[in-house]
Design a binder for these strands. Structure first.
Lengths: 209, 209
DNA sequence: CAATTTTTTGACCGATTGGACAAACGTTAG
DNA sequence: CTAACGTTTGTCCAATCGGTCAAAAAATTG
C-alpha cells in the first residue's frame, strides 16, 4: 500500500508551491472556468505538460487551493475570544479581517468567485466546518449581549456584516478605487475603512444604558 | 444612412428580451467566460444560430445587460433625498437596497462578477456616472453630519458599508443559507437582516450628544 | 395568389481547451 | 560508466467554443 499523497522529493514540493502561487493569481483574476492551464503554466514559468505532471487535472489545483484557503480564511474568527473584553475583541476581529483583505486580496477574490458560482466545490465545508464555527462564535456573542456588554442584536447577521464590509475592500477593490478617485484611493483607504468600521460597529453595538 | 439600432419588428423586440432574460440567468450563475452561447440559446428555447441572428456576438448580449443594470442598480441611491430626515432617508435606502438583493439577486451577481474580474467592460461607468453620483450623495451626507443630525463619519465608507452588507445577501446567498441552516435560512432572513442593519447603522450614526 | 422579406436551422469552420503520451533530458546511486 | 528514476517537453487528440453561411421555413406585403 502506498501513501495517499506521495510528493516525495523536495523539488516536487517546491514546484507544487510554485504552481499553486501562479494558479492563485490566475484563478482569482479570471475565475475557474475563465482560467486556462496554459495561463497558469506560463505564470509558473513551465510548460503545460510539465504542470500536468505535478497536478493531473486543472480541478486538482483549484481543490488544493480551496482547501488551504478555508483554514487561513477562518483563522481570524477562530481567535475571537470568549473571555476577552467584547469591544476589544470585536475591534481586533474587524482589524484582522481588514488586514486580510489588504494583504491577501487574491484569496478573498478566489473565495468570492467560488461562492458566487454557488460554492459547487466547498458546499460541504460551508455546511460543516464553517457553520459550526459560526454557531460557536454566535453563542459567545450572545453571551456578551446577555451580560449587557454590548447591545442585543442578531449575532449571525453581525458576523455577516463584518465579513461583507471587510471583504468588500478586496472583492470590489476596483470599484472602491474608482469611486474614491486617485487622491483618496491610495494606500490610506484601508486605514480610513478601519476607522470607519470600528466606529460604526462599536457605536452601533453600544449597550442602551 | 441607416438607423444605428434598427430593431424594427415587434417579434425582434420580444426575442431580444427573451434572450436577455435567459442570458441574465446564465451569466449571473457562471460569469461571462464561464457561459456559452449554447447555454443561453437553450435557456431561451432557440438554436444558437437563431440567437446569433438577434445578437451578433456574445459580448453584445453582455454589454446590453450591463448597460441596463447600472441604471436600475443606482436608482436607490439616486432617491436619497437631501431635504428628507437623515435617519429616515438612510433607513429607507438600506431597505431598498436589501429589497433589490432579495428581488434581483441575479442582477447583483452579474454586477459582482463583473467587478470581481476587474470591471473590464464598465470601468468608464464606474469612474464617471457612478463616481459622480456617489460624490454628490456624499456631499449630502456630509451636510447632515455638519448639521449635527448624524454622527461624523466618512460618507464614502458609509456608502460602501451599505452596499457591501446589503449585496452580501444576494452575492453570498449560498453561504448565508448554509450558515443559518434550514431553520433560519428561510424567507425570514431578509427581514432579520433589515432589522439588524437598520439597528447597526442608525445606532452607529447616532450623533454624540 | 406570388413576391419579398424576415426568421430559423443544419452543417460547417478555425481556434482554443483540457488532457494523454512517448520520447528526450537530467540526476543520482551503484 | 551505466542503470534506474525523476523531470521536462513536443506532439498529438477529442471536445468544446464562438461564429459563419447558405438554404429552408415562416411571415409579411402587394
Amino acid at each position: 500500500m502506498e501513501a495517499p499523497v506521495p510528493r516525495r522529493t523536495r523539488i516536487q514540493q517546491e514546484k507544487r508551491e510554485l504552481i499553486l502561487e501562479a494558479a492563485l493569481d490566475v484563478f482569482s483574476a479570471n475565475g475557474f472556468r475563465g482560467s486556462t492551464i496554459d495561463q497558469i503554466a506560463e505564470a509558473a514559468g513551465m510548460s503545460k505538460p510539465n504542470l500536468l505532471y505535478y497536478f493531473r487535472r486543472k480541478e486538482d489545483i483549484h481543490e488544493t487551493l480551496m482547501q488551504r484557503l478555508l483554514d487561513t480564511w477562518l483563522a481570524p474568527l477562530r481567535e475571537l475570544d470568549d473571555v476577552g473584553d467584547p469591544i476589544t475583541e470585536l475591534k481586533s476581529y474587524i482589524r484582522r479581517k481588514l488586514e486580510m483583505a489588504r494583504d491577501y486580496p487574491r484569496q478573498s477574490r478566489l473565495f468570492a468567485n467560488e461562492i458566487l458560482q454557488g460554492a459547487p466545490r466547498i458546499m460541504p465545508m460551508l455546511e460543516g466546518e464553517l457553520k459550526n464555527l459560526v454557531d460557536e462564535k454566535a453563542t459567545v456573542i450572545t453571551g456578551w449581549m446577555h451580560a449587557g456588554k454590548i447591545a442585543k442584536a442578531d449575532p449571525y447577521h453581525l458576523i455577516f456584516a463584518i465579513w461583507a464590509t471587510t471583504q468588500h475592500y478586496a472583492d470590489f477593490d476596483v470599484q472602491v478605487r474608482a469611486v474614491l478617485g486617485p487622491d483618496r484611493g491610495g494606500d490610506g483607504r484601508f486605514e480610513d475603512a478601519a476607522r470607519f468600521l470600528e466606529q460604526l460597529i462599536i457605536n452601533g453595538l453600544k449597550p442602551a444604558t
